[in-house]
Amino acid sequence: MAHDVEYYRSGRRRFHQPDACDLDLDYDAREIPADPGLTIVTYTLAAGAAHALAFARLQEHAESQS
Rank of each mutant, 00 (worst) to 15 (best):
R12K: 09
D35M: 12
D22E: 13
V5E: 15
T39N: 02
D22A: 09
A34W: 00
E31N: 10
C21I: 00
H51M: 08
R12S: 11
G37Q: 09
L25V: 09
P18A: 08
R14E: 15
E6S: 14
G48L: 03
R13L: 15
T39W: 12
T44R: 15
L38R: 13
G48C: 06
L45G: 09
D4K: 10
D22H: 11
D4A: 12
S10L: 01
G11I: 05
R30I: 00
A56H: 14
P36A: 08
R30L: 01
A50L: 12
Y7F: 13
S66L: 06
Y43L: 07
F15G: 08
R14P: 03
A47L: 05
L25S: 07
A29R: 11
P18K: 09
Y43E: 01
T44M: 06
G11D: 03
V41Q: 05
A54E: 15
T39M: 11
D26A: 15
T44K: 14
G11K: 03
L38D: 02
T42G: 11
I32F: 01
A56Y: 06
Y27D: 07
M1S: 11
C21F: 06
G37D: 08
R9P: 00
A62N: 07
E6L: 08
S10R: 13
L25T: 03
E6I: 08
E31L: 08
P18H: 04
D19P: 00
H16R: 13
A49Q: 01
A2M: 04
L23W: 06
Q59L: 10
E63G: 00
I32H: 07
E6C: 06
E6A: 15
L25P: 03
Y43N: 02
A50F: 01
H16E: 11
T44G: 05
R12Y: 04
A2E: 09
Q65R: 13
Q65T: 03
Y27V: 11
A62E: 06
H51K: 12
I40M: 05
D35Y: 11
R13F: 03
R12L: 10
R13A: 12
D28M: 03
Y8M: 15
A54I: 01
Y8D: 12
A56R: 14
A49M: 02
D19C: 04
R30A: 05
Y8G: 10
L23Y: 07
I40E: 07
D19N: 11
A50R: 14
G37V: 10
R13D: 03
Y8S: 12
R57W: 10
D22T: 14
R30P: 00
L25W: 04
D35K: 12
A49V: 02
D28G: 02
G11Q: 04
F55P: 00
G11T: 02
H3E: 12
D26P: 04
E63V: 04
P36H: 03
M1A: 08
R14M: 14
D4R: 13
S64Y: 06
A34P: 00
L58G: 02
A20V: 05
T42S: 15
A20C: 06
H61P: 00
S64E: 13
L23P: 14
D4N: 09
E60C: 03
A50W: 02
A2N: 08
Y27N: 07
D28Q: 10
L25N: 03
